[in-house]
Each structure stands twice: as C-alpha cells, then as structure tokens.
Amino acid sequence: MLTQDDLQLLYRYSYALTCNEADAYDLLQSGVEKYLANSNDTEHAVPLLKRIIKNKHIDNYRHDKIIGFDNYDDTIFPLDYNAKDLEDLIIDEDMVEKILSSLNQNEREIIFYWAYEGYTAQQISESLDIPRGTVLSKLHRIKIRLSQQFNLDNNTTLGAKQ
C-alpha cells in the first residue's frame, strides 16, 4: 500500500520529468494503475513505480514527440570536476521554472535526485543504473549551459574542487 508520503514523492518525481503539474498527475495515476495491475511487490513499490513512470513518460514522448531526450551515454567530463560546482550557482528563485523547463527529461531526472533527494553522484548512478562519470558529466554540462543561458552568478571557478 502506497502511503501519502510515497505518493507525494512520486508526484514530485513525475513533475521533475514533465515540468507540468497536470501531466505529472496523469503520469502518476497511470503509473499507479499499471503497478497495481501487474505487480504484487510492495517492498520495492517506490523504485518500481519510478521505473514505470519513467517508461510511461518515454512512451508518451514517443507517441506525442513533444519532449527532447538525449542518451545517458556520455562520459566526457573534467577529471577534477565535482558535483558541488553546480550547487554553487546562484539563481533568482522566480527563474527556477524557466531553468527546469530548459533542461531535457534526463537532465531533470538527474537534477531531481541531486537537488530534491539530495543524492550524491554515486547514489544517482546506482538509482539510474548509469556510470558515475556520466552523472558527473551531465551535472557539469548542466552548469555550463545554465551559466551561459541565464547569465548565472557563481562563486566558484568552473571545474574547481570544493
């Protein structure tokens, strides 16, 4: 049985993927329906539902062709890069929706784990089953792109360790 906290977490995960509250609810509801119909695994309900929701979101994309994806197959990153670099970017709070919208689905998923769940790069790589280097590379590229696109202030030097 999914608790209210589980459902809120999954709703926020869905929002991170869709960047739209109505779409997030539809995604969550269809995910819960599919989970109830096809699984009796209550111990791992949340991670299982995350996977169902993500796959459903990808199916929706393939059907509607409305969201951009890229592959996680990307391991080029500075050897001395640290995920904390991204954390030091300073943004205006009213820009957050624009920033999230500017990211693609894979980037928002990584950002969800990194910012909201507070995961380390290692934990993100384990959750998404991708190499840690790919996670770091993604975070690095997100920082570069957001810095350029939104003229963000940062109090750290790009690529410096914290």
């Binding site: 809120q8 926020r12 929002y15 997030a24 991204l86 300073i90 943004i91 957050v96 909201y116």
Partner: peptide, 17 residues
Amino acid sequence: QGRLRNVISQKIHDVSL
C-alpha cells in the same frame, strides 16, 4: 536569490498533490 540546489529542491517540494 539562492543556491541552485536549494531553489530547485524548494520548487519541487512546493509541488504537491
């Protein structure tokens, strides 16, 4: 203004059923 991580975390937290 705030740090990117904190602002995004707060934004996602504000989204709720």
